[in-house]
Design a binder for these strands. Structure first.
Lengths: 232, 232
DNA sequence: ACCTGAACACCGTTCAAGT
DNA sequence: ACCTGAACACCGTTCAAGT
């Protein structure tokens, strides 16, 4: 254990996997995935690029470790509440984590399953699954319900973050949405009738609310499949 | 238009954006995303790396074009059927396309929204949205329902493809699932009770069926939110 | 055991020069 | 207008050599 960001003892307090991962996360947060370089990392750690390889096998496992650290931190809180509230908590935890660490977006779809059912995926799966179980449906429905919920949460959160990142930082989100809505409304009614129809709603929607509404929609689908217990 | 894979006229039939994208897709399919190199691409096209830049701005737009081409082809069929059947058709079209072109997995989460509401996302959104509208719910629910469905489909399909790719090609999918199930069942009941409980179901599940079951779950949630019209 | 830093084998991209 | 190919400024990774 490292005394988090603590005393920079003499010169360097020796390298370690944890210190490296910590520095990697900082680098990812400040300069993005393209900025995470073994040379930049080495400089930040006041060492040479080769030194890192003594503690970390390669860049892939470094990114995996960085992802794991951040996700675990995001899911550390486990407040009490109804199943729905707990699912919301996990979902929002991931949503916000991805929002704060946009580089997570690429990782969630790409890396989590790359180590299929690795520790991070398992953690999320277990968390969500428990609440699905608490919803009271038959055991035979648990796997499908949980997989669907997790897929939605990871998919939607990831897409949202990439969305946010795509827009130039100086452009206001509202302005950008308004511009998109205008473009949608100007589309050919023959080819894009639906997109035209929802253009106004798009301009008004809030990403976070929309995300949670999706969670509730999936939850409604789960409870609708076994009418009997708690409605919401 | 290029006469697809046709006559190799004399030597080279002049470069073009389409030919380059076509070659890029072939390269991606055969050697993966890491193998798509401007040098390799140039060699395949019997030219120099610099030539490509006259037709394609950079690697990002090349990948975007490759993604767009493949996705559009996957969604080209538009058979008649109930809204549910049509949603299934779009979902399976994407599922199978990602399965055949695994490099799409990284692109779907990462690139589609990078060009927020770019042509490909729009195409999928429009297709799904029309069916959501046909389900008969109030217009105010269309945006949320469609976004949720699209998020699930892209998220689940992407994760599935990465899952498939992660397993060594020589390992049978069934064997791998069985091994994972065994590992799940051996887990600490205190820490992973849910994962233990669904281990057997995991071993038996079929990826494609599971994926479609998720689509139906979301559809059930949509119809449950406005009871009145078509049940399924 | 741990670190250094030069070196290797690559990249994407540019650009003067050609046709 | 379109193509060539050398060159630039990087990468991740390795490895002999040090301490």
């Amino acid at each position: 254990m490292v005394t988090r960001a603590g005393r920079p003892q003499r010169r360097t307090e020796a390298l370690s996997g944890e210190r490296i991962v910590e520095a990697a996360v900082e680098l990812l947060d400040t300069v993005g995935e393209a900025g995470l370089t073994f040379r930049a990392l080495a400089e930040r750690l006041a060492t040479g690029p080769g030194a890192i390889y003594w503690h970390v096998a390669n860049k892939d496992v470094l990114l995996a470790a960085a992802t794991g650290t951040v996700i675990e931190a995001a899911l550390s809180a486990d407040e009490p509440g109804s199943p729905r509230e707990k699912v919301h908590a996990v979902a929002l935890g991931l949503f916000d984590a991805i929002d704060e660490h946009p580089w997570l977006a690429d990782r969630l779809a790409a890396q989590l399953p790359r180590d299929p059912w690795g520790s991070v995926t398992l953690l999320i799966f277990e968390r969500i699954g428990r609440q699905v179980r608490a919803l009271g449906g038959p055991e035979s429905s648990w796997l499908t319900a949980t997989m669907t919920l997790v897929s939605y949460i990871l998919g939607a959160a990831g897409q949202n973050a990439t969305n946010a990142r795509a827009v130039a930082p100086d452009v206001k989100r509202a302005e950008h949405l308004a511009a998109t809505a205008t473009a949608w409304k100007a589309m050919d009614p023959k080819e894009h009738p639906f997109v035209r129809a929802v253009a106004d709603q798009l301009a008004e929607h809030d990403d976070r609310e929309q995300f949670l509404a999706g969670v509730d929609l999936v939850l409604a689908g789960i409870t609708a499949s076994h009418p009997g217990k708690g409605r919401t």
